[in-house]
Amino acid sequence: MNDTESTLNVRIPEQLAGRRLDQALAELLPDYSRSRLTGWIKEGHVRIDGAEAVPRQIVIGGEEVVLAVRLEREVFAEAEPIALDIRYEDADVIVVNKPAGLVVHPGAGNPAGTLQNALLHHDPALAGIPRGGIVHRLDKDTSGLMVVARTLRAHTALVAQLSERDVHRQYEAIVYGTMVAGGKVDAPIDRHPRDRIKQAVRDDGKEAVTHYRVRERYRAMTRIECRLETGRTHQIRVHMAYIRHPLVGDATYGNGLKLPKGATPALVEALRGFRRQALHAERLAFAHPADGRAVEVEAERPADMAALVAALRADTAGDGRE
């Protein structure tokens, strides 16, 4: 794929006053290295309040910066004809409903067959956008909505919205235990000190806040709504386990399969067959990166979770219990 011309527009926030322009841009555009940004400044591709920027220029906050740059191919994954469940699409963004079991990015153990491969088949121009336009992710075995940027402008705007906590991300989950009421988990998260694959609540971790409320109680489990204030890796899974309500089916943060005493045969079968964490990203809302209008997208509960909910309701009602 050939390189493409693109224009980036950013505004220097007041809190970055006194920093060098390249330092400020590195914070505002984290997908580009400091050396690349400095190179663009030296090559005359950056203008600040209409005037050509100079190396080591100090910013005072409030400046409008325009970068007219030639973007090289950012993604080298191969396009693959994998079906996509697209819930919203225009020239700037795509909102896709990811099924459970689909990995987001190629990586060790998953060199192909990922969401990124599917997106590149749908829109080859995404190869010129950082991370193929993917600005946030879902775990392999979490289903639901993700927004993808189709332009560099959209990518920058969405990353900023996520950083400023302006994107509404709402999930449905089924957890072990009967919750009395909703609440908030405000507990920092970082990599587990011994198991590098896992995350953990740590005093020295990064701020992590999850809001939750009860939707439906069953005999030994609860269906809840979760809303992310921050977006740490495995956040909902870690936070629910931390308050001793791990997600049903979560092999990483749960304590294995737990069958309620006296469960109906149908519920036992449903729980034994549910082999992923019961977590679905059901609603996504953000300001459109081009014109600021509100975009709200919803995705219905997937079939496997719907079947589990039906079995839990029947068990709670006593239907089919011997």
Rank of each mutant, 00 (worst) to 15 (best):
I134D: 03
L71A: 09
L312E: 07
I94Y: 04
A303W: 02
M305R: 00
A306S: 15
R196V: 11
P124H: 13
A241Y: 00
T178Q: 10
T210R: 03
F274V: 06
S163I: 04
P260R: 08
A108K: 15
T38F: 06
V95K: 01
Q277D: 08
N117F: 12
M1H: 08
A220D: 15
R191Q: 09
V96E: 00
R20H: 09
S33Y: 12
T316M: 10
R213W: 08
R215H: 10
G256V: 05
T222S: 14
R47W: 04
P99Y: 10
E282P: 00
D49I: 09
A127I: 02
A287V: 04
E72R: 15
E322H: 07
T230H: 10
V96Y: 01
I58C: 09
A306M: 04
E72S: 14
D291H: 13
E64C: 07
I129V: 13
E225P: 02
V180W: 08
L158F: 13
T264R: 11
A311G: 12
Y212N: 06
D139C: 11
R20L: 08
L257P: 09
A24G: 09
E43H: 10
E43T: 09
G249K: 03
T178N: 08
T114N: 03
P289T: 03
H136G: 11
T142A: 05
R244P: 00
I236N: 01
